[in-house]
């Protein structure tokens, strides 16, 4: 559908092992601007590692990760951190919100890390909470809200800095179907509206169905299903 668009993020021949265990064994992935790419595969296949490499959280042993023409693998830790602050957003399965901060403060944090002043960051955060239909829990702590609400707060936090890529690792993994669907709908809609691409790691087909394209990772190798058929 967006085949003509420039690749935003492109990984080629990524290899990564933890100790002797290979996690990635020659994985490739291309993400174009604004598309939702699902990364599927069995547990332990390396899909989370692929996501970490793409986001510059983990440095691959070999291979290249290009983001808008810049090679992430050649960047310093500080540069990659800065990139994550400004261009990327993250949603994880659970345990990602700082329990001591209120939901509003949690959402405001990435913007504040990127240098936005507190009031401005919190105003943006409030806007995003409302957009994700959780405006009413802004003042509560993560421990006081339901799992679905917490996950929507996490989505708001991922999107608040207007990232170009949102990385979502099993964002619905701890939710029931209904809440999972709701989070996915809000996430993909919001990403679509802001033009953010989404890299979605999931093992649930119904969640993957929110994507535009699917990559399967098996034994550390990636497979683009578009190209198989």
């Amino acid at each position: 559908m967006t085949a003509a668009a420039e690749p935003l993020l492109q990984a080629t021949a990524l290899r990564k092992s933890y100790g002797r265990t290979p996690a990635l064994d020659g994985a490739d992935l291309t993400v174009r601007a604004g598309e939702v790419v699902a990364v599927m595969g069995p547990s332990g296949s390396g899909k989370s590692t692929l996501l970490h490499c793409l986001a510059g959280i983990v440095q691959a042993d070999s291979g290249r990760v290009c983001y808008r023409g810049r090679d992430l693998t050649a960047m310093s830790d500080a540069e990659r951190s800065a990139l994550r602050r400004t261009d990327f957003g993250f949603v994880f399965q659970f345990g990602q919100l700082v329990p001591e901060l209120t939901c509003l403060e949690n959402v405001a944090m990435p913007a504040r890390l990127a240098g936005t002043r507190r009031r401005a960051a919190e105003a943006q955060a409030a806007e995003w909470l409302a957009r994700l239909e959780v405006g009413e829990i802004a003042g509560k702590r993560p421990g006081e809200v339901s799992g679905g609400q917490g996950q929507r707060v996490a989505v708001a936090r991922a999107l608040v800095g207007s990232p170009r890529v949102v990385f979502a690792d099993e964002p619905t993994g701890a939710l029931d179907s209904l809440n999972g669907e709701r989070v996915m709908r809000l996430l993909t809609d919001a990403a679509h509206d802001t033009g953010a691409a989404v890299v979605l790691v999931t093992h649930e087909p119904r969640v993957a169905a929110y994507s535009d394209r699917e990559i399967v990772v098996r034994d550390g190798k990636s497979r683009d299903l578009e190209q198989v058929s």
């Binding site: 119904r206 993957a208 299903l225 198989v228 058929s229």
Partner: peptide, 11 residues
Amino acid sequence: DTQRAEHLRLM
């Protein structure tokens, strides 16, 4: 995989 892609397309 082909079958899988077909399924997901429909989904």
